[in-house]
Structures are given as structure tokens and as C-alpha cells.
């Protein structure tokens, strides 16, 4: 009896298969089917908006024709760097100053003395707040693309997307060390940087974090280049990072949480200091499709400052009340 039931079930399954084939062959119409070959990320771009804990507070429209980097200083002034100049705005978005530079700054950082560090394609320039060039460092190499700078009391760290390495320099610009080069003996995987988006930062606890975008990971290094820990997961969900190479930029909140931005699926998210997904700041709907280079900064009030290079503005996101 039991066997008979199994046979009947198996027969039903077989009939279902034949029906499936018949239906698929004769009655499945492609009129309403989406193009299976279309490059469509819509489904991935949608997300549960209840996870979004931030709202856009204000926008600062820049007068620069091309923008690449954003930073804040101790007084929460906002610095925007791009092609041919640097603009400075107050924390409320009031225009304060602008000075010209030769060439394009791909990244910007302001130290505690308000010195402005600009990554000028293959070298670093240091300017003061009144727009005077203090010094220009020599280029590490022709193929260098400096995409991020972090400054401590004694060291300056440069992320070189072209050579896929991080440099530790002293304050005079002398290169002391190369960090993150592939070293199987010390279990350093090496940076995979397929696009010129390669960010690093100093966490509130003073540790150095570097994005390894091709591996979709954050890597924590000691200042002498020892790999301490990593976090990050490559997957298509909101919790992970996806695409060829993400995240493209990041910044730290004061509790050590990471604010990350991605390209491909434009989104800004927050992860705890331990690397656990926490919340959403902004989703694709907030940006033009194909926006890349969403540089980030965080001010003393933990406002998330986002550079939108397509809309040519800086957008400030604050936590919902």
C-alpha cells in the first residue's frame, strides 16, 4: 500500500513535468517578461526603508565644475576639493572661501592644525587655510593615483590606487613604509583595486583601517604594516558589499562605527565598529543612476557629509529624531 502511494506520487510528479514542459513551450508568452539579458539592478537597489535612520538635512551646491573629495576640520567647516580649486563652507553651508589649485585633487584631508592635504593624482600638496601652498611632496611613481590621505600627530598615510599600496610617511613627506603589499608569509592578501577608489582612515581609537575593495573587506593594520584583523562580506544583500570593488569610501562616527559608500548600487550604510550592519543612511533613490565617488566625512555632531559628484553638491544627512 505504501509503495503504491509512492508510485502514485511519482506519477503525479511526472505528469507535472510534462505539464510544465507543455506550458513552457506553448503558453509562456514573453510579452511581459523582462529582458533576461538586460543589465538591471533595480531589484537589488530596492530595500526596506525602515532600516534608514537618517534623513537629508541640507545640501551645499558647489561652484566647482568637478568635485572629488570632501573633509571637515575641527570647527566642522566643510572642505570640497575638485578640479582647479578648493571651497570651504561653514557647518551650516555658508560659503566662506575658495582658492585655486593647479590640476585635480582626487582627495582631501584637513589636519588638526587646519593644514589641507590634497591628493593631486600622483603626489600630495599641503595648503594652509588661507589658500597658500605650503609644500609639495614628490610623487611615489608615475602610475600612482593618491585616492585617500589620513593624518595623525606623527604620520601621514596615503592610499595609492595605482600601485595598490598604502604608504606611511612622516610629516615632511618622507616615505617610511609600504603597507598592505601581498605577503603570504604574514597572511597579507594584498590590495585588489580594480577602480580608482581606494580609501583609508584612522579610527577614533587610533587604528589604521584600509578598504580592500576587490575583496569587499576592511583591513586593520598596525602602523608598521602588520595585518591585525579584517571584516566584510561579499554578497548582494544589504548586509554585504557587492559589485567589482566596494566600498568605495568610508568615514568614522565618533563611536567607531563605519559609514560606508558604494558604487554600482549607490548606497550609504553604517556598520558597527565590529563590522556588523547597523542602518542605512541613503539608498540609490537619493542619487543619480551611475553615481560614483560618494566621498564621505563626519563632523563633530556625527552628521554624515556626502559628496555627490554628479549633482555637484555636498549633502548632509542627520539622524532622524
Amino acid at each position: 500500500m505504501k509503495q503504491k502511494i509512492f508510485v502514485i506520487a511519482a506519477l503525479i510528479l511526472l505528469l507535472c513535468l510534462i505539464l510544465f514542459m507543455t506550458r513552457d513551450l506553448f503558453f509562456s508568452h514573453s510579452e511581459n517578461k523582462p529582458n533576461p539579458y538586460e543589465y538591471d539592478l533595480k531589484a537589488l537597489k530596492s530595500a526596506d526603508t525602515t532600516q534608514s535612520l537618517y534623513t537629508e538635512d541640507r545640501q551645499i551646491h558647489t561652484r566647482l565644475a568637478e568635485i572629488h573629495g570632501v573633509a571637515t576640520d575641527a570647527a566642522d567647516n566643510i572642505y570640497i576639493a575638485g578640479n582647479g580649486g578648493v571651497e570651504i563652507y561653514s557647518r551650516d553651508g555658508v560659503f566662506l572661501k575658495k582658492f585655486s589649485i593647479k590640476g585635480t585633487a582626487r582627495c582631501i584631508t584637513v589636519d588638526v592644525k587646519d593644514n589641507i592635504y590634497l591628493g593631486m593624482e600622483d603626489h600630495v600638496e599641503i595648503w594652509n587655510g588661507s589658500g597658500k601652498l605650503i609644500t609639495q611632496w614628490t610623487s611615489p611613481g608615475e602610475e600612482s593615483i593618491i585616492t585617500s590621505i589620513a593624518v595623525t600627530d606623527t604620520w601621514v598615510f596615503l592610499a595609492d590606487a595605482g600601485r595598490k599600496v598604502v604608504y606611511r610617511c612622516d610629516l615632511s613627506g618622507k616615505m617610511i613604509d609600504r603597507i598592505g603589499e601581498k605577503d603570504p608569509e604574514n597572511k597579507i592578501p594584498g590590495f585588489i583595486v580594480p577602480s580608482p577608489y581606494f580609501d583609508l582612515g584612522i579610527a577614533p581609537d587610533g587604528s589604521l583601517w584600509v578598504v580592500n575593495p576587490g575583496r569587499h573587506e576592511f583591513e586593520k593594520y598596525t602602523f608598521d604594516g602588520r595585518l591585525v584583523s579584517t571584516w566584510g562580506e561579499a554578497n548582494m544583500t544589504m548586509e554585504g558589499f557587492c559589485g567589482c570593488c566596494n566600498p568605495s569610501h568610508f568615514a568614522f562616527l565618533h563611536d567607531g562605527s563605519f559609514v560606508t559608500s558604494e558604487k554600482g548600487i549607490e548606497r550609504i550604510k553604517i556598520y558597527t565598529s565590529g563590522g556588523k550592519f547597523n542602518s542605512i543612511v541613503a539608498l540609490s533613490a537619493s542619487f543619480e543612476e551611475g553615481t560614483k565617488g560618494l566621498d564621505l566625512a563626519v563632523d563633530s555632531r556625527d552628521r554624515v557629509i556626502v559628496l555627490d559628484p554628479v549633482k555637484l553638491m555636498v549633502r548632509i544627512f542627520v539622524k532622524k529624531k
Partner: peptide, 12 residues
């Protein structure tokens, strides 16, 4: 799933 977008390879 396929990875996207394509890497830019601006470094030659």
C-alpha cells in the same frame, strides 16, 4: 550572480 559594475581599470 555576476559581478557589477565592470572594473574601470584606469591604471593602464
Amino acid at each position: 550572480v555576476q559581478r557589477f559594475p565592470k572594473p574601470e581599470f584606469e591604471t593602464g
